[in-house]
Write a protein that binds this DNA or RNA. Sequence first.
DNA 1: TTGTAGGCGTTATCAG
DNA 2: CTGATAACGCCTACAA
Lengths: 346, 346
Amino acid sequence: MNHDPVKRLPGWATMSDVAHAAGVSLMTVSRVYKNPSAVSAATRERVLNEGDRLGFVPNMLAGNLASGRSAMIGIVVPSLRNSNNANSIQGMADRLRQASYQFMITNTGYSLDAEALAVEAFIRRRPDGLVLTGTRHSDETYALLRGSGLPVVEVWETEGPIIDMATGFRNREAGGEIARYLIAQGYDRIGYVDYPVPGLRRYEARRDGALDALRQAGLRADIVVSPLSTDVTEDTSSFRGGTSGLQQLLDAGGVRAVLCASDLLAVGVMFEAQRRGMRVPEDLAVAGFGDFEIAAEIPPGLTTIRTQGYQMGWAAADMLISRIEGLPIDTEIKNVDYALVKRGSA
Amino acid sequence: MNHDPVKRLPGWATMSDVAHAAGVSLMTVSRVYKNPSAVSAATRERVLNEGDRLGFVPNMLAGNLASGRSAMIGIVVPSLRNSNNANSIQGMADRLRQASYQFMITNTGYSLDAEALAVEAFIRRRPDGLVLTGTRHSDETYALLRGSGLPVVEVWETEGPIIDMATGFRNREAGGEIARYLIAQGYDRIGYVDYPVPGLRRYEARRDGALDALRQAGLRADIVVSPLSTDVTEDTSSFRGGTSGLQQLLDAGGVRAVLCASDLLAVGVMFEAQRRGMRVPEDLAVAGFGDFEIAAEIPPGLTTIRTQGYQMGWAAADMLISRIEGLPIDTEIKNVDYALVKRGSA
DNA sequence: TTGTAGGCGTTATCAG
DNA sequence: CTGATAACGCCTACAA
């Protein structure tokens, strides 16, 4: 009697088991779990009881194979430790859960090659859609996505050519807005601390917007430092970047105000100012970008641009779901709002 | 622009397609992609060429169904925004990637019911293993796990009964160690700011360890505040908790030193002290827990316990992989090291 | 080294 | 509302 193949997942009850136990066909069980309203209340009850009794949990791998849909999304982010990113991931997670999708996630460490590998690894699992960070990708990534025909949302940047859909905000505008605020406050020598990771459009845009504003106001737009621009890794401390950024600015002749590409850099600047006995904002005004949680807490409060990471993530998931389910989409490119938040630092 | 729902069976090339094109059997193609060394170099070359030409990407859903293995892990965390957690997730991600596993992740908002739902949702996808946070779970979760027979690692706590395997560190011991350090520094009235989320063993243990140490030194062990203990959500600001924690301690008669259940609380305390013109450590000593990135940056440096979240996550993934692949495991319970880090704040 | 047969657990389809 | 049948794309086991 040893004709049965060895079971690799022993113990799992299957739909057949439940069907037998409940005295119905396979399809009825399937319907009970996928589309309960298509089954009479009585049979549904009976099937569910037997299912529970047998500890039946539907095997989605099998279902996905049969249906060609996986209810799974792949999300590619540069870093899992970036708290700014965490907000957008949470936004996606909440929207996806609401629609009964799950997600895989992977980080690339800001490497486009790693991104391509991640995308291929995801595609092997036949997700229903993909979320990528930024609008700059390797040729291989583009080829894979083209071949897959999958819905794709790019997040955080709406600059640059879009693959399919994108959510983000106007980085350039936002950079201009906070720079103009500093200018309006009467600060003259304004320095810019750029993001430590080079080549990201969103940071380039926000810097260029700021520098343009300075130029238009007739101010110097060349007091720019890129802390840690060598030897950058995913784990490069942004706080430390602010620290060395301020050092560099002071070495270069000093500034009256510092505009930073992210709040964490700004906090690093403020810490360094504190260490040097410089008062914020009296001796040095500081502005950040992102409105991270700490911005509201650090004395005297960090003036910054609030970006709506959570809403952006939610919108990204929402667009993806719409496309997957064939619903109409208003725009392929959705910009969420940002807002200047004035606090004590500038 | 395509508003049609995702089509069943899009134009994916299958192994048969590749097999036909290369003039070999299905199994040869399968081997080329799963176990290349089992195929002659010549055929392998030919198959890979055809595969590339056809844009073939293996369908793991089908493979998983056939093999009963998914190379997929489910990770359940309370919050995706907790930066401490992020380190352990990164540790898992790196170890998993190394072994070609992918992961799904979901957050529970500290709800045990949400955890049970998440576990069931994961099980439907037949992961090879599961990672849970903490050692306290609902009966339903226990039942699901028992029924699944899946390898499980619990992380961050090794206190309490273990389901299968666990990684963490000795929270109680660590709490005692940092308390004893404060005592040795000569501080007498020492207050404790507890974690805002109630019912988590790891925080209870670290608090109890600290209070025991105070008692043994003959000091008061009842100056404990639980900021924000009502109306807690996943997004409760830990900084704000530190702020209100210090307020409460001062209202309750003041303290010479504050020990906090997490670095973020400690940073909140330091910010509030700064606002009140209290000097750290001269007027108020502060100690944290976790050695978050900010601890080294905030002046005058935060004395804290370094917990190795990354290593813990790596170890968790490592144990899980070992169990999945039938390799021996030294211990079911693996404690990673922690270390007292002395900085300027206490 | 390569091929054949059978099945993994579910869903689409169409008939009753 | 329920059921029979045929995929879905790949892998295990065994044979050649």
